[in-house]
Design a protein around this nucleic acid. Structure first.
Length: 864
RNA sequence: GCCGAGGUGACGGAAUUGGUAGACGUGCGAGACUUAAAAUCUCGUGGAGGCAACUUCGUGCGGGUUCGAGUCCCGCCCUCGGCACCA
């Protein structure tokens, strides 16, 4: 009689496992629905409640879809490769191979205990050679199609993790840039690395066509990509220095309408133009300045209060009015955005104004707004309300009109072109670490000397002869043939390039992976000429592992391809994806990029990997984020033992909207246990009563309803409410409705019967699956409650049986009162006999209305 | 600075998207059971006034639209998230 959650949950979990209740037939499913959650990386403490929160939210949706009749595929795996796992291994002194084995066991035990409907046959781990074989395969395909570059760049270097990091893996903290993983301050280092050309997809990544993503997530990505449209204006230089005189250079601007306000030009200290601009007289000054800049760190440069800079000695000639303006060099101009040269408009740009004031340069107003004075402090540059002044024949035009006209005119004269700039940079993919998939490349010094590479081979035309697709243009191939001299990708049949078991896997910190010291690994023969060659020893970024795992899940048994085309066609793109917002610029962006690229290479017939994405909130503890350092990480195990997985699931969902997260407190959990236990007692009691058909329209609208009818009415309300809320992912309000129903049930326990218990079993099934199975059993149901579809759960199929509406009395608007009346359907109706509340009767002078005209969505006319 | 989200009891949060504000749950108070505690159950719980039925005020602040505003419009204040010497 007592609710013994431990034996009950154990019983159903082993039953699900044995019966493979949640393992869909991937080859045959008629109504496939791919329900995915971001797979966890096996952290030190095991699965924590934050993971469970996300997984439960996702699982409820998946189970709801199952009850609606879909064949739901809900796979799980481990993102076990990468720095986070490796750092933990270093800390414990246990080798990553062994640590992975241990973590996997622990995680999968926990993932079983939380009661999700995982399709365990399809689990995958990113460190499994059967998996990373295809991660490497993707690298090779991208390489062959010019989506991979090897270039020197100033990059983020984490001195603690001893590897380079991508821009996405660096986060700002207290004015410093720190490593996303270890929070150490990153340095800038110039190194040569492998890059994925994600910038080629900047424009495509801005288009979310056909997806249902939250606005905020889209906005974070859009911000990160940072598109700005403007023009590049060409300036003539006078006088030109050096043997190779620069005749012109471009400055990028989004506000070409201010071009008459240009009083100087500034070049970045790193600009290749610089040495050609510096005159004899100014050389000393400039060199001294460059020396000073060199000594500054990135952060110091950013935080500098004063806009420092020096004159180069050269002048630029304005393309609009021939005005000669001095060219300066200053470190507030960034080399890696635009052209590394900017036009200085001190009147309408805050930085330019600071610079002009510091260096006593002229300020000319060219925009006027609301008659206000001209300096930036008082006029908003981005305002489009002002008009242009002091600009010859453009004077008087509005900002936008002027912008268009000046651009057009300059383009006609060949002095400008329209330009789009993005903040997005290419994705640095190589890591100088051990625990990742080796980058499957071979470098042959002999071929390099002779100028040979994969791109100079005769058959180097595209990705896969069978696909007949190549993103490689002729020009790009020629360029790559030069840049990639000596480089060959590993042949697909030789994949995977297995990560060897190495005792000394410590990061070396010299810009090289530990594998660089393993001769048996790096020794190789050149695939082209057979000479002594060297294997690449860097491994790829963890985010590449996770950028395609959703493609592999349905095809885990596929041996000769990364994903089986037929199965992929049936299951992808992912129907619902749930995960953390913090991955908006990381994982989600990369996954979209990889999917788009594979689409363009002909491997996929869709562009977006996730039809719908849903960001869950963060679970905090006592008002602060859970973290290892604070020691406040909560592991679900103890709570599952004490209260049960169902109670914990309910508690987590009841905290509030899943998008918001919540503060984890023990107090609320007892309440959930109490509720479930009460529900269990009631079900036991009611199930003893034989089934009597539950009528849907018994007693509706009647004032003398019996207790039983009251309960039935409540039940139908609840089905409707929960059906809608589960669909909208409003799990907290769905649960509130359920609790309300239980309260009514408890008030009239004799009204319910076996059938009633069966219905409640389906209602609670998404959120409390173990208890639901038990209810289904005691109500006399056969098999699993999840085995059959329940069309009534579809809110559209449950007809409105009542309506609360607004009335109008005798055609005049006098009073606004809510009215309950018996109306079926959504059609306009004249109701002859209407029961109204006493309150309304009072308003009508104690009478009941003769008739009511009900028009859905409109006011109601009440005739007395 | 730019972009976005949001401010409702002691707390987490509801409110059919313009229709009885505070569902549901915590917490708190009172009671039942118990030698006692825990657990469980019952009742109460926005403020002020009243023995009471009831009255009145109340959704960050100030205005507005409307028969009716937590919800819509205008102007502020505050909190959180993203980007940021990006031209």
């Amino acid at each position: 009689m007592m609710y013994d959650h431990q034996s009950l949950e154990k019983k159903w979990q082993s039953c699900w496992k044995k019966e493979k209740t949640f393992q869909p037939d991937l080859k045959k499913a008629g109504k496939p629905f791919y329900n995915l959650m971001m797979f966890p990386y096996p952290s030190a403490e095991g699965l924590h409640v934050g993971n469970m929160y996300a997984f439960t939210g996702a699982d409820i949706y998946g189970r709801f879809m199952r009850l609606k009749g879909y064949d739901v595929f809900e796979p799980i795996g481990l993102d076990g490769f990468g720095i986070h796992s490796e750092n933990y291994a270093l800390k414990t002194g246990r080798h990553p191979f062994k640590q992975a084995e241990r973590s996997q066991k622990n995680f999968y035990r926990q993932l079983h205990a939380i009661g999700n409907q995982f399709a365990w046959d399809n689990h995958l781990e990113t460190y499994d050679p059967d998996y990373y074989r295809w991660t490497q395969w993707i690298f090779v395909q991208f390489f062959k199609n010019g989506l991979v570059e090897r270039k020197k760049a100033t990059l983020n270097w984490c001195p603690s993790c001893k590897t380079v990091l991508s821009d996405e893996q660096v986060e700002p903290k207290e004015g410093k840039n720190v490593c996303e993983r270890c929070k150490a301050e990153v340095e800038r280092r110039e190194t040569e690395q492998w890059f994925f050309k994600i910038t080629d997809y900047a424009e495509k990544l801005l288009d979310y066509h056909g997806t249902k993503w939250p606005k905020t997530t889209r906005q974070i990505q859009t911000n990160w990509i940072g598109k700005s449209e403007g023009a590049t204006v060409l300036w003539r230089i006078k006088p030109c220095q050096g043997s190779d005189p620069v005749v012109e250079f471009g400055t990028f601007t989004t506000t070409i309408d201010t071009i008459f306000g240009v009083t100087f030009i500034v070049v970045s200290p790193e600009s290749p133009y610089l040495e050609k601009l510096v005159t004899e007289e100014q050389k000393k000054t400039v060199d001294a300045y460059l020396e000073k800049v060199k000594g500054k760190t990135e952060v110091e440069r950013m935080e500098a209060k004063e806009k420092d800079g020096v004159f180069t000695g050269s002048y630029a000639v304005s393309p609009v009015n021939g005005r000669e303006v001095p060219i300066w060099v200053a470190d507030y101009v960034l080399m890696n955005y635009g052209t590394g040269v900017v036009m200085g408009v001190p009147a309408h740009d805050r930085r330019d104004l600071e610079f002009a004031r510091k260096n006593k340069l002229e300020i000319i107003q060219v925009i006027e707004s609301k008659g206000k004075s001209f300096v930036y402090d008082e006029v908003d540059k981005h305002s489009v309300k002002g008009k242009i002044v002091n600009s010859e024949n453009y004077t008087g035009l509005s900002i936008l009109a002027g912008r268009e006209k000046i651009t057009d005119d300059l383009i006609k004269e060949g002095k400008a072109k329209r330009t789009v700039n993005y903040k997005l940079r290419d994705w640095c993919i190589s890591r100088q670490r051990y625990w990742g998939p080796p980058i499957p490349m071979i470098y042959c010094p002999k071929c390099a000397k002779e100028g040979n590479s994969w791109f100079t081979k005769s058959n180097s035309s595209g990705s896969d002869p069978a696909k007949d697709v190549s993103l490689l243009t002729k020009e790009r191939r020629q360029k790559l043939a030069q840049e990639m001299a000596g480089w060959y990708p590993e042949a697909p049949k030789n994949l995977p390039v297995e990560l060897p078991y190495v005792e000394d896997y410590q990061p070396r910190g010299k810009g090289q992976s530990p594998l660089a010291g393993v001769r048996s690994f790096y020794q190789a023969k050149c695939p082209a000429c057979g000479a002594e060659a060297r294997r690449e020893t860097d491994v790829s970024d963890t985010f590449l592992d996770s950028a395609w795992y959703f493609l592999r899940y349905p095809s885990t048994d596929c041996k000769d391809q990364p994903f089986d085309p037929k199965t992929t066609k049936r299951w992808l793109p992912v129907g619902m994806y749930i995960g953390g917002q913090e991955h908006a610029c990381l994982h989600l962006l990369y996954a979209r990029f990889v999917t788009m690229a594979l689409h363009d290479l002909g491997y996929l017939d869709f562009i977006e990997p996730f039809k719908e994405f849903f960001a869950h909130g963060l679970i905090i503890k006592d008002g602060t984020k859970m973290s290892k350092s604070k020691g406040n990480i909560i592991v679900p195990d103890d709570y599952i033992g004490k209260y049960g997985a169902d109670a914990l699931r309910m508690y987590l969902m009841f905290l509030g909207p899943i998008t918001q997260g919540g503060d984890f407190r023990d107090a609320g959990m007892q309440g959930m246990k109490r509720f479930l236990s009460r529900l269990y007692q009631l079900a036991q009691k009611s199930a003893k009563k034989e089934a009597k058909p539950i009528s849907k329209d018994a007693g509706m609208g009647s004032s003398d309803v019996t207790l039983s009818e009251n309960l039935i009415k409540k039940l139908h309300q609840t089905i409707r409410k929960m059906g809608t809320d589960y669909g909208k992912k409003k799990y907290n309000t769905a649960l509130a409705a359920l609790m309300k129903l239980t309260n009514v049930w408890q008030a009239y326990p004799e009204s319910a019967n076996k059938d009633f218990v069966g219905i409640v079993a389906r209602l609670i099934a998404p959120v409390a699956p173990h208890l639901a199975e038990e209810f289904w059993l005691i109500s006399g149901g056969k098999g699993s409650v999840f085995a059959a579809a329940w069309p009534e759960f579809d809110p559209e199929l449950v007809k409105e049986s009542e309506a609360e509406v607004v009335i109008q009395i005798n055609g005049k608007l006098r009073e606004t009162i809510k009215l309950e009346l018996a109306v079926a359907g959504n059609q306009e109706k004249v109701l002859e006999k209407v029961h109204v509340s006493r309150k309304v009767q009072k308003h009508l002078g104690g009478r009941e209305p003769k008739k009511v005209i009900f028009v859905p969505g409109k006011l109601i006319n009440l005739v007395v």
